[in-house]
Amino acid sequence: MTPSSPRAQQHATRAAFFIPGFATAAWAPMVPFAKAKAGLSDASLGGLLLCLGLGSLLAMPLAGALTARLGSRRLMIATTALILLTLPLLTLAPTPLALGATLFVFGAGVGAMDCTMNMQAVAVERDAGRPMMSGFHAFYSIGGFVGAGCMTGLLVLGTPLWLASLIAVAAMLLVALLSAPHWRPQRILHDGPMLAVPHGVVLFISVLAFVVFLAEGSMLDWSAVFLAEVRQVPRDQAGAGFAVFTLAMTAMRLFGDGIVERLGRTRTIVIGGITAAAGFALATLVPSFAMALVGYVLVGLGCANIVPALFSMAGQQRAMPESIAITAVTTLGYAGILAGPAAIGALAHATSLGFAFLCVAAMLLGVAASARSLARRLP
């Protein structure tokens, strides 16, 4: 069935971004429970979280190739089903091995969905003839805020973890049923290898995306642990950190297209990188739950429009074909989520979690410093 109208396609694309944002955020408040249940240290938790990122990383180039064969709608339906099936299993995995395997499959579903929806978003934005990328990514953030907020609220009310996960699945299923008929069915041309090694400006964009996704991944997987273990916040309230981070990111991305139009992509990246770095520093160096939340807000505000700007730049460059470049940037950018949690866990084990967060702040300052050089390399 062909989507009824361009507006229906746009709304359905926003819903596609909402689903993986909701799913990954619903997992964030579950992390301290999973860590305690399995008796994991920071380093071993980081190793298990590596499974989620590894599943995403391996699924992304495969999704790029399958979109050309199956069409984006079929692939998005399949990956949504995979997400919905595995999220409840994360609460039931009895051993670290089972948890790692489930995280791998869950990550594969999220990663494949992320890659496919970004390709669809580029096509929908082009057909609309106006900037829409920040708005689409805003709905990933909306999903993150709603998912983290709902899961945290259910846990505070005493809802069993397995039941809270089923409620989350039911909400995502409803969104998918309403939007899937309007997802674009066409096969997106992918004329090239499954994963082309990025070069030139595409490699530059990929490295910056890697850093920003690493920062976002640290919020997903370690913000609740930091609040619970360093700031001594009760575990059932520790998900509030990721909730305020996603709320700030959502609010900023809702206005992101207009902000990028006024400031330009380069200044947006510079200001965003500095703001996010300041947020990490504040949350880490000031020993206060309230100040940690303020810091997470700044991280969300700063990171909000960097990734959408980088995806738009990937579509603007001419060093590689657009579809292959977007797949490469998505894959290598999301490698930050693969490497980030494990690296932070290992560094926290050797030093402290606060020091690991300060290292992320330093890398974000590097993103800000690199923006003007990147802009000079684009047509």
Rank of each mutant, 00 (worst) to 15 (best):
P96L: 05
F139D: 05
T152A: 11
G149R: 00
C150M: 15
A68N: 11
G264L: 09
C359K: 00
G100Y: 04
T331K: 03
V233P: 01
R74F: 08
F245V: 05
F255W: 11
G256E: 09
T67I: 15
S312Y: 03
K37E: 14
S288Y: 11
F280G: 00
T152I: 09
I306G: 01
R74S: 15
T266M: 15
M219Q: 12
T159Y: 05
A121E: 06
Q9A: 15
A224D: 01
T250H: 04
H190S: 13
G21N: 09
H11Y: 12
K35I: 01
A281C: 13
H349Q: 13
L40V: 00
G158I: 06
D191S: 14
G264R: 07
T266F: 03
A361S: 15
W27D: 05
M363K: 06
M117S: 08
A121D: 10
F139A: 07
L45D: 00
P160C: 07
F289Y: 14
G272C: 05
G258R: 13
L189W: 01
L49R: 01
F33Y: 14
L195P: 06
L54C: 04
G279M: 07
R265I: 07
R318C: 10
G129L: 08
R7P: 02
C359W: 02
V202D: 05
L254T: 10
F210T: 05
G336Q: 02
W222D: 00
R14M: 13
F145W: 11
A325W: 03
T80G: 14
L177C: 11
A148D: 02
I274S: 02
A78V: 08
